[in-house]
C-alpha cells in the first residue's frame, strides 16, 4: 500500500466526493494499476463503509455519499480496464422486480458489489423477471440479484427460480434476493441460492458464490 492509496480509502470512507477523482488520479500517478486501485483501494474503502453501516456508525446518507465518491474513482479507472483484457471477478445482473419501484436498497447493494470489483448490469426498477434472466444469459453473468420491498412482487422472485429451472440454468446462474418483504425462510422456500438482510450481507453472499 501507499500513502496515495490510504488517502483514496480515506476520501471514499469519509465521502469527500469532490476529491474522489483527484485521489484516484494520484494513485495512478504513483504507479498503481487500475486493478490495484479498484481492489486494494475502492473495494477496501467500501468494506470499511459496510462495517461502519453494520455498526450503526453510518446510515444511508453517509453510505450514499461514500457510494457516489466510489463512482467518481471508478469512472476514471474502469474505462482503462476494458482495454486490458477486461478482467472481472464476476458478473451480476441486478434489479427491482416488476411491480415495485423501491430501488434505494438495490442501489446500495449495487455500490457494495461494485466495490467488490464485480461487473454490474443494473436493470433498474419495475423489471420483468424474464428480462433479467435474458440479460444474465447474454452477458454471461453468474448471479442474478433481485430486490423488492413489497409483497405482491414476491411472486416474481419465485417465477425467476422457475424460469431458471426450466432452462436448465439453476446452479449455473445463482440467485440472491433481498428487500423488506423477503426473508431467509422465503428464500429457502422458493429455492433462491441466497438471501441477505442488507447490502453488507449481500456483498458477503456474492463473495461466497464467487469464491472470493
Amino acid at each position: 500500500m501507499s500513502a496515495e492509496m490510504d488517502a483514496l480509502i480515506d476520501v471514499v470512507v469519509k465521502g469527500k466526493i469532490k476529491e474522489g477523482k483527484d485521489a484516484t488520479q494520484k494513485c495512478l500517478d504513483a504507479g498503481h494499476s487500475p486493478q490495484e486501485i479498484i481492489f486494494d483501494g475502492l473495494s477496501a474503502a467500501m468494506a470499511i463503509v459496510g462495517d461502519k453501516y453494520a455498526a450503526k456508525q453510518y446510515f444511508l446518507p453517509q453510505v450514499l455519499l461514500a457510494a457516489n465518491t466510489l463512482y467518481m474513482g471508478l469512472n476514471l479507472v474502469l474505462p482503462m480496464l476494458t482495454g486490458a483484457g477486461g478482467e472481472t471477478k464476476g458478473k451480476v445482473v441486478i434489479g427491482v422486480v416488476e411491480g415495485d419501484v423501491h430501488d434505494i436498497g438495490k442501489n446500495i447493494v449495487k455500490a457494495m458489489l461494485t466495490g467488490l470489483g464485480l461487473t454490474i448490469y443494473d436493470m433498474g426498477k419495475d423489471v420483468p423477471i424474464k428480462d433479467m434472466v435474458e440479460k444474465a444469459k447474454s452477458e454471461g453473468a453468474t448471479i442474478i440479484a433481485e430486490s423488492t420491498l413489497m409483497t405482491p412482487t414476491l411472486a416474481g422472485m419465485k417465477a425467476c427460480e422457475a424460469i431458471l429451472a426450466e432452462e436448465g440454468l439453476k446452479g449455473q446462474i445463482k440467485t440472491m434476493i433481498g428487500g423488506g418483504a423477503t426473508s431467509k425462510e422465503f428464500a429457502d422456500q422458493i429455492g433462491a441460492d441466497g438471501w441477505s438482510y442488507d447490502a453488507v450481507e449481500a456483498s458477503k453472499v456474492a463473495s461466497a458464490f464467487l469464491g472470493l
Binding site: I17, P61, Q62, L64, L65, I104, N107
Partner: peptide, 11 residues
C-alpha cells in the same frame, strides 16, 4: 426522488 432527497442531506 427519495434517494436524491436523502443524498441531499449530505450535500
Amino acid at each position: 426522488s427519495t434517494e436524491n432527497l436523502v443524498f441531499g442531506i449530505m450535500m
